[in-house]
Structure formats: structure tokens, C-alpha cells
């Protein structure tokens, strides 16, 4: 998939996955890889930015003797996700039209 398109979708994917359940970096990468192919290292800058924008927050919890950083979606994040989903719906109309025309 085109890198530009993918980057636009990555934010929605992260918010979408985190809305269901809090997750830590590795797990989140695995979850997202199921939807969208990303490199193993790609998620950190995205998470960092979303955290900076106040859409995510982090907390640490112990797991088998180590500390793990968990990401949790904030109220602003949910609001943002809903906005993005609305935009995706609009986008879907355009895509459907183009694909139908193409076929």
C-alpha cells in the first residue's frame, strides 16, 4: 500500500486497537500488523506523537519481573477516533464509487 495512505491510516488503527484494550508496544505492533503491514520499529514515533497530542496516555505495570509501559486511549483520543471514523466513512464512499467505476 502507498506509504502516504498507510501513514494516514496508522493513527486510526492505533486508536482503534487501543479503544478495545490497553496494550504495550510489542503487543500493539502485533495487533496492528494484523490489519496493516508496518515495520517492527515504526510504531514508536506514532505513539509518541499521539501521546504528545493528548490522545493517548501511558502507565507502567509489572509483568513477570519487568516493568511494561501500557498505552491507554484518553477521552480526547476517543473523540478524535470518532472524527477519523466519520472521515473514513466519507472516504469509503469515494473509494466505492471509484472501484465500482473501475469494475
Amino acid at each position: 500500500m502507498d506509504a502516504q495512505l498507510k501513514k494516514g491510516l496508522l493513527d486510526v488503527c492505533v486508536l482503534h486497537v487501543l479503544k478495545k484494550e490497553d496494550a504495550y508496544g510489542y503487543k500493539l505492533t502485533q495487533e496492528i500488523t494484523k490489519i496493516l503491514y508496518i515495520s517492527e520499529s515504526a510504531l514508536y514515533p506514532v505513539l509518541r506523537r499521539l501521546e504528545d497530542q493528548g490522545l493517548l496516555e501511558t502507565y507502567t505495570a509489572e509483568h513477570s519481573g519487568r516493568l511494561r509501559k501500557y498505552y491507554r486511549i484518553t477521552a480526547a483520543g476517543i473523540e478524535k477516533l470518532n472524527e477519523l471514523i466519520l472521515e473514513l466513512k466519507e472516504l469509503r464512499k469515494v473509494i466505492d464509487l471509484i472501484i465500482m467505476d473501475g469494475e
Binding site: Y24, G25, Y26, Y44, L47, R66, L67, R68, K69
Partner: peptide, 9 residues
């Protein structure tokens, strides 16, 4: 983040 990631992997 990357340390934790590699450990988890």
C-alpha cells in the same frame, strides 16, 4: 520502548 519491545519479542 525499544528495550521493552525486544524483550517482549
Amino acid at each position: 520502548y525499544y528495550e521493552e519491545y525486544l524483550n517482549d519479542a
